[in-house]
Design a binder for these strands. Structure first.
Lengths: 146, 146
DNA sequence: TTAAGTGCAAAATCTTTGCAAATGT
DNA sequence: ACATTTGCAAAGATTTTGCACTTAA
């Protein structure tokens, strides 16, 4: 997966969704693509202190509507946002993957390469989507402990 | 599973955890055991309007600490609480089961009878717990639609 | 030029904290 | 009687809304 993108690809991405290419949006995109973990509103705020808190809320919100990012809740119930992959459509996300929440650093990893095993639900339940949350130690924190 | 309990069993449960048997706590227990879905703070508030909002927060909080209930977040990131089963210990919950979140009525069902299939994580990740969230239509809402 | 996006102020929620009064044991 | 629990008020935190100013196209 080509998670590394340059400035022009971010601009294209915004174009594609009929969003204006503002500095704030480009910075948010650039930050989110540079990390392999999901980003929360507090994360964004602390990194981009010169951008208004409300603007960040609105950027996350419009990116989610357009299907550029998707939302995932961590162990504390805080919303974290991660970039979507090509098969994500607006409001119909391919979030059927595994999220890993580290209990030490609280980072949320999207493990896109894993597929969920099939699962039979009790009679009457009609499942449309699945998300598996795993929690424990991520590679980085795992090293520090052992 | 004997999810139906009477007044005396709730009192025993509180006793066991060295909690005083107050009217508010007994009512919360009774409500949570009578449902097969998880309960959110807003749920509780609307049903028990005569009990102070803060008291409900504190009851949920102490029940969770003692391992009487466990927390699960629904699709909207709202905390929902469900009664724990016998193998739940304080701060070490057996929540390795499947949660089903209905997209129509937003109820959260704990499907305790299902076990999670094994899953291999990428190198470096040390998983301690798993929770699978399924979303779709619950039996009740499923009937209404078809 | 003008529609979209941003910043600021303020409102609306949600959650926590402190303390006095009430309750359970 | 005494420690716990509750209710109320108020503080904190988070998220949303309205509107004037700014910016991208």
């Amino acid at each position: 997966m080509s998670s590394v993108k340059n400035k022009y690809q971010f601009e294209d991405l915004l174009d594609k969704h009929q969003l204006k290419k503002t500095a704030a949006r480009l910075r948010v995109l650039s930050m989110m693509y540079s990390k392999n973990t999901a980003t929360s509103q507090p994360d964004l705020e602390s990194v981009m202190q010169d951008i208004d808190r409300v603007t960040l809320y609105r950027i996350l919100s419009v990116f989610e509507e357009k299907g550029i990012i998707h939302k995932v809740f961590d162990l504390n119930g805080t919303a974290n946002y991660a970039v979507c992959h090509s098969d994500c459509e607006a409001n119909h996300h391919h979030d059927e993957h595994v999220h890993f929440n580290c209990t030490a650093c609280y980072n949320v990893y999207c493990l896109n390469e894993l597929t969920l095993p099939d699962l039979k639900l009790p009679a009457g339940f009609r499942a449309e989507g699945f998300t598996l949350y795993a929690s424990g130690l991520c590679p980085t924190c795992s090293k520090k402990v052992s």
